Computed example of a mutant assay.
Amino acid sequence: MDLFNRLVSEQMATMEKLLYLQTELERCQQIEEELQTLQNATDLDSIQIDIQLMKKELKEIQLIFEKQTEEVINSYKETNLTTSI
């Protein structure tokens, strides 16, 4: 019976280690998942900043294009007025 009790005690100690490691593994996997989410959020912030900069640049280029279009139209009108006189 002493052998049986010793084996059961060893098995219980092993079970405690197993449960502890299983709990720790799940905790670490949860932390890993949260860190991956944070990493993705960091990437998202970077992409959002890039998008805002590109939108600003696009708006500036659109304004320049509109101004150039007005200049082309005015130049065309002046050329036609001068030619028709």
Rank of each mutant, 00 (worst) to 15 (best):
Y20M: 07
K59S: 07
N5A: 04
L38Y: 12
M54P: 01
N74H: 09
Q39S: 12
Y20C: 03
L53Q: 15
Q52S: 14
E66N: 06
Q39D: 04
E66I: 01
F65C: 05
M54Q: 12
K77N: 05
L63Y: 07
M1Y: 13
R6Y: 11
L58I: 05
I85L: 10
Q22D: 11
K17M: 09
L44P: 00
E26Y: 08
Q68W: 03
D50R: 05
L19H: 15
T42L: 14
K17D: 11
N74F: 04
K55M: 07
I85Y: 08
Q22L: 10
F4Y: 12
I47V: 12
A41F: 10
I51V: 13
L18G: 02
I47W: 02
N80S: 04
E32A: 10
Q11E: 04
T79D: 04
T82D: 07
D50G: 00
T42G: 02
L21K: 12
L53I: 10
L58P: 01
K56S: 11
E57A: 10
T69N: 09
Q22E: 14
Y76M: 11
M1F: 11
E16V: 08
N74P: 02
D45K: 14
L18R: 07
E24R: 13
M1A: 14
Q29G: 01
E70D: 13
L58M: 06
L63F: 05
I61W: 00
M15R: 03
Y76T: 15
Q39K: 14
S75V: 03
I73V: 12
D50M: 02
Q22M: 10
E57G: 01
N5D: 05
L19N: 14
L3C: 02
N5M: 03
Q52T: 14
A13I: 03
V8H: 06
T69S: 08
T79F: 07
K55L: 09
L44Y: 01
T23K: 14
E66S: 02
L21H: 12
E78F: 04
L3P: 00
R6P: 03
E26I: 11
Q29M: 03
S75D: 06
K77E: 06
L3V: 11
I31P: 00
